[in-house]
């Protein structure tokens, strides 16, 4: 076991991990931030997407130790300071961009990364950017609509 330290959602955190401890395990188990979900074991579904150093990554495909010293944002860090839903989160609610909610944290984190890179994406750009996030409920229609609304907000 070794100690890993990083900043998660603006707070400095540390914990004891093994070499094989994934970042997703660390946030879920050590930090009890269970909004980050695990939907596959082949790095395809994107339910675990978080930001590391401002970039979207699949937290199930990076070891916690590799994030040593990084700034990590999870879905729990996306709300406004007063606790209300952030712009993208609110757009998802307004546009029914989620049903069961399981893929949603990853979708929101990917959407945030997209809008950071490209504040006014086209529908095609949104759909292509979401290539690594699988949703089984919505058919993506309202997810795309939500991201468009967030871009316009």
């Amino acid at each position: 076991m070794s100690t890993v330290t990083m900043t998660v959602n603006g707070k400095s955190v540390s914990g004891e991990v093994e070499g094989r401890t994934l970042l997703s395990d660390f946030v879920r188990n050590n930090l009890n931030l269970t909004g980050t979900h695990i939907g596959c074991d082949t790095s395809q579904c994107g339910a675990c997407v978080v930001h590391v150093g401002g970039k979207a990554v699949k937290s199930c495909t990076i070891f916690a130790i590799e994030a040593e010293g990084s700034s990590v944002t999870t879905i729990e860090g996306m709300a406004n300071p007063d606790g209300s839903l952030g712009t993208i989160q609110q757009a998802f609610q307004d546009n029914h961009g989620l049903q069961c909610g399981f893929c949603t944290p990853g979708m929101v984190m990917s959407a945030a990364a997209l809008l950071e890179e490209n504040p006014n994406p086209t529908e095609t750009e949104i759909r292509e950017y979401l290539e690594g996030n699988i949703c089984r409920c919505t058919g993506y229609h309202n997810i795309v609509k939500s991201i468009q609304a967030a871009a316009a907000a």
Binding site: S43, G46, V49, K55, A56, V57, K58, T61, I62, S110, A113, L114, Y129, E131, G132, N133
Partner: peptide, 9 residues
């Protein structure tokens, strides 16, 4: 290659 999150790693 892959998807945006994969391309970031």
């Amino acid at each position: 290659i892959g998807d945006p999150a994969v391309r970031n790693r």
